[in-house]
């Protein structure tokens, strides 16, 4: 198994993001301990992706700071950050004839100067990253001919090739089938890195994450262990669904079942 970097503490401090006059993220503070895996959940448009974008420097917070082991990431160079924090995004390479190998090898670029080629170590790292994601037989295949799930796994492999201690994942289980959803998240856990994962599936979040942070309309409305956070009241409030939360008898993990009856009465405001 690959040796990742030393897990760092990721600390978001009073993050506000205002874009075009709209507040997308409002006063979010979140401290993630080294090696902790935190799920970021919430309805569409809650600000999950925007918050994550401030972690990998795609979006400068309007106010607030993002600290990695106490160091402000906006005071680092892009390369310095890319050696310490890797991101798995929903953005996939364009329709050019890149091989899976080429795409994963991009993960080595934060360590490379101009004119520097891949050495044997890089090749080992690039080839071992897909192995853990069950795509290494595809190394020479053209990336754009893969299925959605395979592409997603290659992008996770690219982040692994960065050998960072911290990972930010924006819906990494999108397009993945059941088995690969579990494999991907189990892998993130096993790496021992600090990780923030935006997820839609609350049961996956409960099964694999130490803590769940619920965003709604740009604010953190709840954060804590899955058992504490996933309650019918909160789900009704945030998602406007009627849900039942049970604890699995063997694993002790809370499980959310949405009742098909429709919205709960009472807080039926249609704000999104």
């Amino acid at each position: 198994m690959s040796t990742m970097g030393t897990p760092a503490e990721l600390h978001a401090e009073g993050i506000h993001v205002v874009v075009g006059g709209r507040s997308l993220v409002r006063d979010v503070s979140l401290r993630i301990a080294p090696g902790e895996v935190v799920a970021l959940v919430g309805p569409n448009g809650a600000g999950k992706s925007t918050l994550l974008r401030t972690f990998y420097r795609a979006q400068r917070p309007t106010s607030g700071r993002v600290l990695l082991d106490g160091a402000d990431i906006w005071r680092m160079t892009g390369r310095q950050l890319a050696r310490r924090l890797a991101a798995v995004l929903q953005e996939a390479p364009a329709e050019f004839e890149l091989t899976v190998y080429d795409v994963v090898a991009m993960g080595r670029s934060p360590y490379k100067r101009a004119f520097q080629g891949d050495d044997a170590d890089d090749r080992d790292i690039v080839m071992s990253a897909p192995e853990s994601l069950d795509v290494n037989h595809l190394a020479q295949a053209p990336f754009d001919r893969l299925s959605g799930g395979e592409k997603q796994r290659v992008l996770i492999a690219r982040a692994l090739a960065q050998r960072t201690g911290t990972m930010v994942l924006d819906e990494p289980t999108n397009h993945l089938d059941l088995r690969h959803q579990f494999d991907a998240l189990r892998l993130v856990r096993r790496l021992g890195v600090t990780a923030v994962v935006a997820l839609h599936d609350l049961n996956l979040a409960a099964a694999f994450c130490d803590r769940i942070c619920v965003l709604n309309a740009g604010r953190v409305v709840a954060a804590g262990s899955p058992t504490k956070v996933l309650t019918p009241t909160l789900l009704a409030e945030v998602y406007q669904v009627d849900a039942e939360v049970t604890v699995h008898p063997c694993t002790g993990i809370p499980q959310v079942s949405v009742l098909p009856g429709g919205r709960s009465e009472g807080d039926g405001s249609t704000s999104t």
């Binding site: 974008r53 990998y56 420097r57 795609a58 160079t77 892009g78 390369r79 310095q80 950050l81 890319a82 050696r83 890797a86 991101a87 995004l89 953005e91 996939a92 390479p93 364009a94 050019f96 890149l98 080429d102 795409v103 991009m106 993960g107 670029s109 934060p110 490379k112 101009a114 520097q116 960065q162």
Partner: peptide
Amino acid sequence: RPLNLLLAGEEAAASLG
């Protein structure tokens, strides 16, 4: 290398340094 990164998309390229 940076040229390859451009193919990955703007945000991905930025996240790769």
